[in-house]
Structure formats: C-alpha cells, structure tokens
Write a protein that binds this DNA or RNA. Structure first.
Length: 594
RNA sequence: GACUCGGUAGCUCAGCUGGUAGAGCAUAACACUUUUAAUGUUAGGGUCCUGGGUUCGAGCCCCAGCCGGGUCACCA
C-alpha cells in the first residue's frame, strides 16, 4: 500500500523516527540515566559484551531444591530485578528469569570480601534499579520465614534499564495490587505486559504447544507441511475483502492471501497424499474481540478421504491437542465447561434448524424459506439466496446452542462453492463446520474435484459479484486448469488457530492470544528542534521581545488574551525556555530568556 | 459504522454537580545483616489526551477531535 503514496510513506517513517527528536524525560528516567553514568564512572560497563554463564533456572531451583539440596551449592543465574528490599548491610531482591521468580539474599560482606564495599553500597544499593538485568552466583538456602532463596556471592550488572517498569505486587493472600491492566498499554507494549503480568507468557507458550501438537499429529500420518504464496494475483479460497499491494518490478497488483485453499489443492493435484500449512491470512474487514486483520489458519488436505473421515480425524486431533496442552480434554471457556474428548455429535444443519425452530426446510423453495425466516424475526432482503437464508436462520437461532463440540453438516450448495455436492441430495454439500462454545472453530469439505462443476460454481459467484456482492470469489483459471488434469477425491479442513487458542487458554479476546494485535499507530510527541509558536505564545512573545522584562499583569493586559489563552501561552513559552517568571518583593515579573 | 464507558504523577487510581491538583506503590535521602505488599522518618515528582468555548476562575460544564475498552451492526 505504502508504495502508492511515497509522500505518506516518508511521513510515516518520520513518525517512526521519534528517537531522533528530543523526548521529555520523567524524573525517574533522568535519575536512571545518571545512575548509568555513575556506573561508567566506577569503571562498570552497564551493557557488558561478555556472555554470562547460567547453569540453572528459578523454576528448577524451586521445584528440586528440597529434594536435592547438594545440587544447588554452586549456581549461576541471571534475570531481571523485580523488587529490592534493602535492610542496611543486607538486602533481598526478587530475580525474574524466563521461568519465574526467585528471591536473592545479598549480604554486603559476602559480595564485598575486602575493604572496598562499593559493589554493595553503591552499585547494588544505589545504582541497581527494578528492571535491570543482573547475574548472580551463589548457593541456594531457605530463609527463616521458609522461602527458598539464593545466597549471593557474586553480583554482576548485565544490562541497565532506563525506563521504570510498572510495579505489580502480590500480597500474602495472593491478591494482586496495582495490576498493569490498561488494555491499550498492554497490547502496545506487550514486552512490558510479558514482564510484569503473570500468566501472559503461559498463554503464548500454550499457543505454540497447540501448533506443535497439531503438527505432530499430522506428521504421524505422514502428511507434509508446506508453504504457499502469501502474495497472490487472485485472492481465492474464501469470501472476504483482501488487502491490495503492488509489485514494482512486475508492475502488477498483488493481494495478500485471504486463504491458501486453492494452492494446497494444486499440490494434491501434483500427487501429495496430504499437505498442510499454518497460514497467516489477511482480511481487510472490521476488527473486534474475535477478528484481527491478520490471523492464523491451519488448512489440511488429504487425498482419497471424504468429510466423514475428516470428522473422525478432527475430533481425534482436538482431543490430543487438548491433552497435550492442558493435560485434560476439558476446557473452561467463560462460564462453560467444554469437553474435547472424541467423538462429537454430528447434526445436519437442516435438522439443527428443525430442532431449534420447529421448521423443516427440506425441499422448501427459496420463497418459502424466506417467509419462514421472516416469521422467525430475521431481517431478510431479496438479494439473499436460499443458502444465505439458511445460514442466517442457523446463525440467529441455532449456533449459540452448540456449546459442546458438534459437527454441523450438509450445508446448502449456495454457500459452498468449493465443496462437493452431497452424495444423496444435490441441493446440499458434503461440508461440516465444527461448533464449539457457540462459535465456529473449523470448516471442512469433501473437496469439489469436478472441474466442470467447479467452473459453473465460480460463474455463479461471478453473477453474485455482478449483483453487488463484493466478496464473491474471483475465477481462478489456473486452479480450474489444475482440476482438469484431475484431483483425487480429497477432504480438506481449516481451523482457526487464534480461536482454538482462545478456547484452550480461556481468553475472551483475540488480542490476548496475539503477541502484537493490530492497533492504530501510536502518535509520539514530537518536540521538533525547530520551534513553532502557537498564536497565543506569539502574541505574548512579540510584546515581551520589545520590553525584555515586565510586570506580569501588565503583560497580560497588553496581549488582550483570555485567561485560558494567556495561561496556555505562558506555559508554552516557559516550556520552550523562552520566558521566565520571577517573583520579587515588587511583584511578579516576566523576563525574556536569551 | 452506531451506542456507551474511559484518558489525572513512572504505575494503579481518587478528585465534592466550578475555587491553590490528592493517595498507595515507585523515586530520592537517612536508619536497619534472613525480609517479603519489609519497616520507620523526610523530600521531590503533574502539558489533568488535544484544540476551541462559557466563566472573574475549568481536571470538573459545553462543542469538536484523537486514542483505547465494551456492546451492537457488518463480516467467516
């Protein structure tokens, strides 16, 4: 996108380049920069280059020390200082490494064996801040109040932190105080969220485990993990609005993929038994608690299978993933307890509708269905075909009832242009969606491999497109050519990784399972070197320039500014360092600063 | 896109239907060699999101905007 607008692009780079501008520092940031200089003055590099050997993690110590005390006589550990409690000649600090936190005991005469106590008195007590990375060597012991701790014999600064972290404290009852929970700050500064909020890392570790459990499952069947293009000349495989970009050398438009289905099927045409891809897809649509413009979908295609086989496969997969990740098939999702143990109920969509509305739609015409939808209180319009109407009815009246994993099967043909017709009813397709907690989790077909039927379905999509449906699919001629060479009967399945992660980590927002959810770019205060005065500031400055120094009331009078405008103007001028207010016995004077 | 809630110190938040900006933690200084939300004493720290308006006077009221959350709509 940016290449279309070079001027915007340069403005954007300018915004990003905020570090070059002077930034106002808080008191605490200034103090930390001073500490940095003092360390250097003491001959200590606050950012040493050498590696620091670590031979244990906090978790290992806390788990194993009681059982194997002798193994922890000579340990070396590194991490961030998360709290400091100084008590004269001895102190405690909490050290946080990638696995957790452990308390460290630092006694002055232990880390300073000789006469020189600088390392303790200055470096540790005064120049070490919360957030600094430090290395500690020593042995593990248990304090009088029973906390497993490290007794430090050596203390090393590994990296100085210049920006104070939010302080989150947990009291004796486990109650969290001053939690860092402003969503904007948490998502924009995920690094801080990860450091100070317990449990955030765990969500992301689980996300990765979900993907590796899934990968293991597929690999155990011998299926091949592949990569297909993200930049596509025709965005196919789903109905959605794509992002558009441009390739300079080829001078062609390219789309960011909305799905990878058509490419994976080409690989089945090419002779692979099973292929799968964890794909970042991109859709240029609204954002909310469950939608991010880029998201991850796993799609898998297996030759010589149908959607019945895929249901068995999918439920086995989810059962395994749930156990691998959470140690149980049960998952708490909001107020619901969901059990991922196979097998799952299988309900044809028309039966689901009959059950929850009392209307049997089998063999009903489009108009009859439209009447029923209206009776059910659903907004309908003439552009909606049979498939869309059924989808609406299901979405409004049925979807929310399927809390436990349930395969909803046999969708109407109009909604599924890439799916094979049902073997028993050609108004339906061999498709299922897996519903969990009232939401769609996975979608699968017996893939359409009849090239002539596929061409007709695409042409039907084109007619929809001409009727104004801007999400109808494009015709992908190369994909049709591939099908004409022949694709074996194939079943394919796609599953939303973000949504699955939300379910298995009980997260209510997609932003909680994405490290960096999309946000409007942050504006950084830009204190340009070139001063630009506001109208108010100028009015005051122009008068003051003439006189140099004058009584404040008189100056205000002369400017003719309102109280607020005057106040803003004066504040602005002092902030720029152009004017100074001085209080003397004769009164209050404003002076221009040279 | 609509509605709604919020934006005040580094962080978490108070702020009386308008009158000199507050607390806790954090920070600085002093004391303290097994503490643990360490403690005690003292001190400093503010573009009250931005811009207008009303007013003698606005963190507070009015208008416009920016950013975020929630709900709904659109959308798989």
């Amino acid at each position: 996108m940016l290449v279309y607008y070079p001027s915007l692009y340069s403005i954007y780079l300018c915004l990003l380049n905020f570090s070059a501008m002077s930034v106002q520092l808080s008191e605490q940031e200034i103090i930390r920069r001073e500490a940095l200089q003092k360390l250097r003055d003491l001959g200590i590099d606050p950012y040493p280059a050498a590696l620091f050997n670590v031979n244990v993690t906090s978790q290992e110590i806390l788990n194993n020390y009681e059982k194997r005390k002798l193994d922890y006589k000579n340990i070396s550990i590194a991490g961030r200082v998360m709290s400091k409690r100084v008590m004269g000649k001895a102190s405690f600090m909490e050290l946080q490494d990638s696995h957790g936190r452990i308390q460290v005991y630092i006694a002055r005469d232990e880390i300073c064996q000789g006469e020189d106590k600088t390392l303790y008195n200055e470096v540790f007590k005064k120049l070490t801040d919360i957030g600094d990375f430090v290395g500690v060597k020593g042995y593990v012991f248990t304090t009088q109040v029973g906390e497993i701790s490290i007794h430090a014999s050596e203390f090393t600064i590994l990296s100085k932190s210049l920006k104070p972290l939010p302080i989150v404290k947990t009291d004796a009852d486990g109650k969290i105080h001053d939690a860092f929970k402003d969503p904007e700050l948490r998502y924009r500064q995920r690094y801080v969220d990860l450091v100070v909020n317990e449990g955030v890392k765990e969500t992301f570790v689980k996300r990765t485990k979900i993907m590796s459990a899934m990968r293991d499952f597929f690999n155990s069947y011998g299926y091949l993990e592949v990569e297909t293009p993200i930049l596509q000349p025709i965005p196919g495989g789903a109905a959605a609005r794509p992002f558009l970009t441009h390739h300079n050398a080829l001078d062609i438009p390219l789309y960011l993929r909305i799905a990878n289905e058509l490419y994976l099927k080409r690989l089945i045409v090419g002779g692979f038994d099973g292929v799968y891809e964890f794909a970042k897809d991109f859709r240029n649509e609204g954002m909310d608690r469950t939608h991010n413009p880029e998201f991850t979908v796993m799609e898998i295609y297996v030759a010589y299978k149908d959607y019945n086989w895929m249901m068995d496969f999918t439920e086995k997969m989810l059962e395994k993933i749930s156990i691998d990740v959470n140690g149980t098939t049960e998952a708490q999702i909001g107020n619901n307890k969901v059990d991922f143990a196979a097998p799952y109920a299988r309900v044809p969509i028309l039966s689901a509708i009959e059950k929850h509305t009392g209307h049997n739609l089998h063999g009903k015409s489009e108009n009859e269905i439209r009447d029923i939808a209206q009776k059910l209180g659903i907004d309908v319009d003439d552009s909606m075909g049979k498939g869309k109407l059924i989808d609406e009815i299901f979405g409004e009246k049925c979807e929310r009832h399927y809390i436990q994993p349930t395969f909803i099967t046999d969708y109407p043909i109009e909604m599924s242009p890439l799916c094979k017709k049902h073997r028993e009813d050609d108004s339906l397709t061999e498709r299922f969606e897996l519903m969990v907690n009232g939401k769609e989790l996975a979608n699968a077909y017996s893939e359409l491999n009849d090239p002539i039927d596929q061409r007709e379905r695409f042409e039907e999509q084109m007619r929809l497109s001409e009727n104004g449906d801007d999400e109808a699919m494009f015709i992908d001629q190369d994909f049709l050519r591939a099908l004409e060479y022949g694709m074996p009967p194939t079943s394919g399945m796609g599953i939303g990784i973000d949504r699955l992660t939300m379910f298995l980590t009980n997260s209510s927002s997609i932003q909680d399972v994405l490290f960096f959810p999309q946000m409007r770019p942050e504006k950084f205060a830009s204190h340009q070197k070139k001063l630009e005065l506001t109208e108010n500031e100028k009015a005051i400055f122009d008068i003051l320039k003439e006189r140099g120094r004058m009584e404040i009331g008189e100056l205000k009078e002369l400017t003719g500014l309102s109280g607020k405008a005057w106040d803003k103007g004066m504040k602005g001028l002092s902030a720029h360092g152009l004017a100074k207010v001085e209080k003397t016995e004769e009164g209050v004077f404003v002076e221009i600063v040279k």
